[in-house]
Amino acid sequence: MTVPPAMAVPLRLIPIPAIERATRLVFSHVMTRHPGLFDRLGEHAGKRYGFFPSDLPVGFLVEPAKNRISVHRKADLPATDAAVTGGFVLLLGLLEGRLDGDAVFFSRDLTVTGDMEAMLALRNALDDCNIDLPSDVGSLAGPFAPLVRRAAAEIRSRVLPKEAGQWN
């Protein structure tokens, strides 16, 4: 599944600092809930990882050693050591380990460039961390946490099986 233009286009209008603030809030919360996420990276923790959703007008740069994520316009993507490009939903599925990275790569739905060793280390680190975005993001919503968690899980169940269905 690709992100519908009606959802992607508004991101062109929202200032980067605003998108970045929201992204950093989620990133920092995920890191708090999964403190060992980057332990498996070893020497690759100092690398710069790019995540470039092909269906969004922005890309994300993750710097594990600095515990930092930044957001960039497509026209102004930063230099990276390793980068992965694919649909936003696919990238989220990989982040959670719900999709097999090799299978998505074989299908050509994903492109990986740069330092393969670093990207492989990150893939394996993410795969072991059991990130659950509905649960992780939901807990940010205070009293509305159960509602957000349920809604996010519902959205995931609708989009991920379709994506996974291409190879399952």
């Binding site: 999709l99 097999d100 090799d102 299978a103 795969d127």
Partner: peptide, 10 residues
């Protein structure tokens, strides 16, 4: 062993 947990489970 080099594949992800989604592959192993499936």
């Amino acid at each position: 062993r080099q594949r992800g947990k989604a592959y192993v489970a499936e």
